[in-house]
Design a protein around this nucleic acid. Structure first.
Lengths: 219, 219
DNA sequence: CCGCATCCGTTTCGATACTG
DNA sequence: CAGTATCGAAACGGATGCGG
């Protein structure tokens, strides 16, 4: 039985929390930021959430109009969850919240990191040289493949498209996150096999170097 | 016993939710956005939250460095809670979340509205003419007095300062919220006694007219 | 009266097991 | 693969108590 409790407060913040304030709700939304996902993808991305919780949150978010369930056309036939237009507008809020969160002084735990999290961090913190030529990197993480398009100092991330990438990187989310702004991590990850690359390494270095992590907060 | 559970996820969003993701935590933070508050002020602003919950959240938020408790100098002697610098950085996030929330298609419930909520809405949605002369309005809501300073098309809200206001308005939060962008509500509230004014009514009209409420979201 | 702490019934969470 | 069923543990929500 899905949760249905309200703060009973007409304030917009409280109304937002009525919709996405339940535990795990915003993390489910986070997982959908970069594209539709199947139930099992969500479970893999959020291994600490039990299956009934994920199911409950999906039902509630759908009921509130934040997400929508869609049946993929044959031959795939499977069902995916995706954000509605309104749900997608959570993106800047979640990005800002993540920025705020990493500035916390709490110990950075060696915990899990979903592919979406690592890609969002990449997109947020990557600072490719603005005058660099456009490039497309293919990123394979956790059995899914994404495309990072570098253009005009910006990084766009989405499902891998038909465009041929200039370079490919296969690794796990934590290794990718460790690479941000740390060229040494890039080389060592390749050396010890935690990452494999093909294509033009310069495109990947362009993507991963110069990442600007926000400074921790002052008390 | 305060809550201490973690998502165990290194992502910034999850780390933020470890800190402010528990029920009521962000609403407590909201109440502190416009200045320090005593325990009892918070209870009055959040009547639907039980006292132990408020106490628990305050303890947790303090432990995480979001808020701080401060003893007012004599003769006041009482204790107040206030946001730390890091806690204050939640402000744009909460404002954005509130904007997102009011765009939800759920029925606008006739529920309660705290003074802080109404003032945040005023600050967010007020659109005073940019070429209007600066003015200070004093706003008395729920036994506390605030100052709204109009300058260059912007509205700044804070605790009432020593500056003499051009106009004063005494009403309740819901009536104030109803006035936003609705000149008729302003006049009728005064007519039926739900609001009292003194000073120059033009300053108040400048503040309350032309409010731009965001359009509801499309599905 | 303010600032909580304690008690207690209800709801939600979280883990595991199970089904179409 | 995509969920449902069940159950103990924790958190919530309301009431009441209690020292300063």
């Amino acid at each position: 039985m899905p949760t249905s409790r309200s703060y009973g407060d007409a304030c917009g913040i409280a109304r937002a929390l009525d919709v996405v304030g339940e535990r795990w709700a915003l993390l489910v939304a986070r997982e959908l930021l970069l594209g539709p996902q199947r139930f099992t993808d969500l479970r893999r991305a959020l291994p600490a959430a039990s299956s009934n919780l994920v199911a409950d949150r999906l039902r509630e978010l759908e009921g509130h109009g934040v997400i929508r369930r869609r049946k993929l056309p044959p031959p795939a036939g499977s069902q995916v969850y995706e954000l509605t237009a309104w749900g997608h507008e959570l993106e800047p809020i979640l990005v800002a919240l993540g920025d705020w969160g990493v500035r916390g002084t709490v110990a950075p735990d060696p915990a899990s990191l979903s592919a979406t999290s690592a890609l969002l961090a990449l997109r947020s913190y990557a600072r490719p040289a603005p005058d660099a030529p456009p490039a497309i990197c293919q990123l394979a993480l956790d059995d899914r493949t994404w495309a990072a398009e570098i253009a005009a100092g910006q990084v766009l991330i989405g499902p891998a498209g038909p465009a041929r990438p200039d370079a490919s990187l296969r690794t796990d989310p934590k290794t990718l996150a460790a690479m941000l702004g740390n060229p040494g991590a890039f080389d060592t990850a390749i050396a010890d096999g935690r990452a494999e690359i093909s294509g033009d390494p310069r495109a990947l270095r362009l993507l991963l170097q110069n990442a600007a992590l926000p400074p921790p907060a002052a008390a």
